[in-house]
């Protein structure tokens, strides 16, 4: 039984006068992985940045339309963007642990922002988050070393742990593996498959194989418009639209 966790409805977005998303509507199902694919500049990153209200921090950026999280529009006036961002976590393209914080502090920082003072609770949450991110065994002896001393793939899993510590319901991945080697990429992909048991996941990716490997649903964006959305399998084997087929076949992008 499919449950809709998040519904993107008639969403348009601009940077100043330049419209980067045009009336996009996509349902995102609970405990599934949805991939967003499309050539560079098609608006995929902007789309997920609208889901945690990060798009609006850019000066002169504008959003129209709705994003319903459990039926509630996150763009309603009474919604605090800070609360949205706690429920909808994000992992970025470049691993970005805070460079002057230890591994432990990087994961704990979100809890401290939320006013958690109980040291035992912080300790156990951090360790759980690191375990869930598949990093704990590798770093358990150096929790108090700087996070930036880790490898790129480990840094990315650290960033995932940092997000997980806040117990988000939805996790957005913005091309999380584009800066990583194949082995680190495989680990992150395994992790995504593990995480969907308890989270709803949206991943933006350039890598079509990756989309095919990790996602159940795929949305294809082109020039800011949603061309096609459906089961990943059918998008890749029997796309309905010509544009999708051309992209999947590697004719452009």
């Amino acid at each position: 039984m499919l449950e809709t966790k998040l519904e993107i409805k008639n969403l348009s977005a601009w940077y100043s006068e330049h419209q980067v998303l045009k009336n996009v509507s996509i349902p995102i199902y609970k405990n599934k992985v949805a991939a967003i694919i499309g050539p560079s500049g098609c608006g995929k990153s902007t789309l997920i940045r609208c889901i945690n209200r990060l798009h609006e921090i850019v000066p002169n950026a504008k959003v129209e339309g709705q994003v319903l999280l459990d039926g509630k529009n996150i763009y309603d006036i009474d919604v605090d963007p800070m609360e949205v961002r706690k429920k909808v976590g994000m992992v970025f393209q470049q691993p970005n642990p805070f460079p002057t914080m230890t591994i432990f502090d990087n994961v704990a920082v979100g809890l401290k922002l939320n006013g958690v003072k109980d040291k035992k609770l912080i300790q156990s949450t951090v360790i759980n988050a690191l375990k869930e991110a598949g990093l704990y065994e590798e770093v358990k002896d150096k929790l108090h070393h700087y996070g930036t001393h880790l490898s790129g793939g480990q840094q990315q899993r650290l960033c995932i742990a940092r997000t997980l510590a806040l117990r988000p319901e939805v996790i957005l991945f913005d091309e999380p593996c584009s800066a990583l080697d194949p082995i680190s990429t495989a680990k992150i992909e395994d992790l995504i498959l593990e995480l969907k048991k308890n989270h709803t996941i949206i991943i933006v990716t350039h890598n079509l194989q990756q989309a095919a490997r990790v996602s159940e649903y795929t949305a294809f964006l082109y020039l800011g418009e949603l061309i096609e959305f459906g089961l990943t399998e059918s998008i890749f084997t029997a796309p309905k639209m010509k544009k999708t087929e051309e992209y999947i076949m590697g004719r452009f992008g």
Partner: peptide, 23 residues
């Protein structure tokens, strides 16, 4: 991307400045 990491954790602007910029 460090500023955005802070904001994405639900930090207010001032909290983001504290954890991402000042530190």
């Amino acid at each position: 991307n460090l500023r955005e990491a802070g904001l994405a954790l639900g930090a207010t602007k001032w909290e983001m400045i504290k954890i991402a910029v000042l530190k």
